[in-house]
Design a protein around this nucleic acid. Structure first.
Length: 480
DNA sequence: CGTAACCCTGATAACAGGGTTACGGTGCGTTATT
């Protein structure tokens, strides 16, 4: 059957979106692949369609439980019953059942951590898969080395034996991230499809402040006077809460969001935002992955993110409906120091490496280190991962290297806050691409026509405030 | 590592300036308590 016929039969579409056909054909030809497609451009179809053609299960490794649930629901909505999310939401009985009948499912979603459990591994060893998908594959690079080491173990697992094609999917990935994906997954001459990373409808604003108080004043004013829906990214949980409270007191529909809240609260806030009951989310970088909201008009960074990849990922949440949107990066001297601390603050130290080895030598459980609270659970897991693989000296060198790389990544982001050249050109450059065409309201340095837009806005105001979102965008562009 | 908020001191009134302290992100799975 032709691909189009299968597409129509299962998904009801008549044509493919850019890249989908190429990626699917490569997979069907047995090749590995890396596909970078913006959210909303049908990434998941790249594995769902092959799932219907290759009559064996597709395994999808996903970073978040909520993401898995969404994907499962989405598939069930189009009538697919043979789909399962193998994760800790399942009770022991449910998990046993799912594992027992695992080969019967068409789509199996799971986390890296669950995938690597012995019982899952044993089951998978007896099964034949048609395809392994690593969804949101930038997580390998973003999390694998110092946060969720199991992201690195995915590649170790299937590199050793005969395996089906592997497809890595992500919205955006810098050159470094693509390299990390390729090497840690040991992809064999992968087919690579990279959609244009530039999002011409997002204007790239930037405001530099003399001190923090000025910045705070600007934020308070800006949020009060401009329209959402928007995300205000903060670099600390506490500040997210403080700002959120200030806005709430000013009568705005705002909520804070960070990983300190329980899963239910987070789900609730996210849903309120999606449903339009909240205009602003004041969040840490915990917010965003898997958010399906097309009309986000603004993404503001109170402090710069830790690297360019994260920045692109975060601003890319704006304007998915194709209508104009605005990203504003705020900077104040010294902001990079906080970013540097935050990204390296929880790494194990050289003395931790020594102590780990010492405990192993004495045949004491290294996890005893956790009892007196000298390092976090995350730091311990990272330490354990590397210590099991490498010598004490190698681990120390690796950790030092990691710190250096993280600092460099922050410095690259810092350049964007300081450049006098076109921000868009520079940003796109980090993704190995060349800017095709500058949009009219390109960036702070090329000139965003705030004045023009402001005048229009005034004219607009004299008429009526009825044109739903056009007038909102104009409102949104004041405050400069 | 750097910042901000806090406290203390000195010398007799308000407050400058030194010292101290608290604070800073991301998620899985499992297990022991409410």
């Amino acid at each position: 059957m032709e691909l189009e016929q299968t597409l129509a039969k299962y998904f009801g579409y008549t044509t493919f979106r850019p890249g989908q056909r190429e990626v699917i054909e490569a997979i069907l030809a047995g090749k590995d692949g890396i596909a970078l497609l913006p959210t909303g451009m049908g990434k998941s179809l790249c594995y769902q369609l092959p799932g219907y053609i290759l009559q064996k299960p597709v395994l999808i490794v996903s970073p978040l439980l909520s993401l898995m649930q969404d994907q499962v629901e989405q598939l069930k909505r189009i009538g697919e019953k043979r789909v399962v999310a193998l994760n800790s939401f399942l009770s022991l009985t449910e998990k046993r059942y799912a594992l027992h009948f695992l080969e019967q499912y068409r789509f199996i979603f799971t986390s890296p951590e669950m995938l690597l459990q012995q019982q899952v591994q044993e089951k998978l060893a007896k099964m034949e898969l048609s395809l392994i998908v690593v969804d949101e594959a930038h997580c390998i690079s973003q999390w694998g080395f110092d946060f969720r080491p199991d992201y690195l173990r995915i590649g170790e697992w299937f590199s050793q034996e005969k395996r089906p094609p592997v497809l890595a999917l992500s919205a955006t990935a810098t050159q470094k991230v693509v390299n990390d994906i390729r090497t840690t997954l040991s992809l064999h001459a992968p087919f690579e499809f990279m959609y244009n990373v530039d999002r011409p409808t997002i204007s790239l604003g930037r405001v530099v402040f003399a001190d923090r108080a000025d910045k705070a004043k600007w934020i308070l004013q800006h949020i009060k006077e401009t329209a959402g829906p928007g995300i205000l990214y903060m670099s600390s949980r506490k500040r997210a809460e403080q700002y959120s409270e200030a806005f709430t007191q000013a009568g705005l529909r705002v909520a804070a969001y960070h990983a300190g809240y329980g899963a239910e609260d987070r789900q609730f806030i996210q849903q309120q935002f999606i449903d339009g009951e909240l205009d602003w989310i004041v969040a840490t970088n915990a917010f965003g992955m898997g958010i399906n909201k097309s009309d986000i008009r603004q993404v503001i960074h109170e402090t710069m993110p830790a690297n360019v990849a994260n920045y692109m990922q975060e601003i890319g949440r704006a304007g998915r409906d194709g209508e104009p949107a605005l990203a504003i990066l705020l900077y104040c001297d010294g902001d990079e120091e906080l970013a540097k601390f935050v990204v390296t603050g929880d790494l194990p130290s050289a003395s931790h490496v020594d102590r780990y080895q010492e405990l192993v030598r004495q045949q004491v459980q290294p996890s005893n280190m956790l009892k007196n609270g000298e390092l976090s659970e995350t730091a311990f897991r990272v330490l354990a991962y590397w210590s099991q693989k490498e010598s004490v000296e190698q681990v120390k060198a690796r950790l030092n290297q990691l710190v250096l790389e993280k600092y460099q990544a922050v410095d690259e982001m810092l350049k964007i806050t300081q450049t006098k050249d076109c921000i868009r050109t520079q940003l796109v450059g980090y993704f190995g691409q060349k800017l095709q065409e500058k949009p009219e309201n390109c960036c702070e340095n090329c000139g965003i026509h705030y004045d023009e837009i402001n005048t229009e806005r005034l004219k607009e105001e004299k008429k009526v405030e009825m044109i739903p979102w056009e007038s909102r965008l104009k409102q949104l562009l004041i405050g400069f």
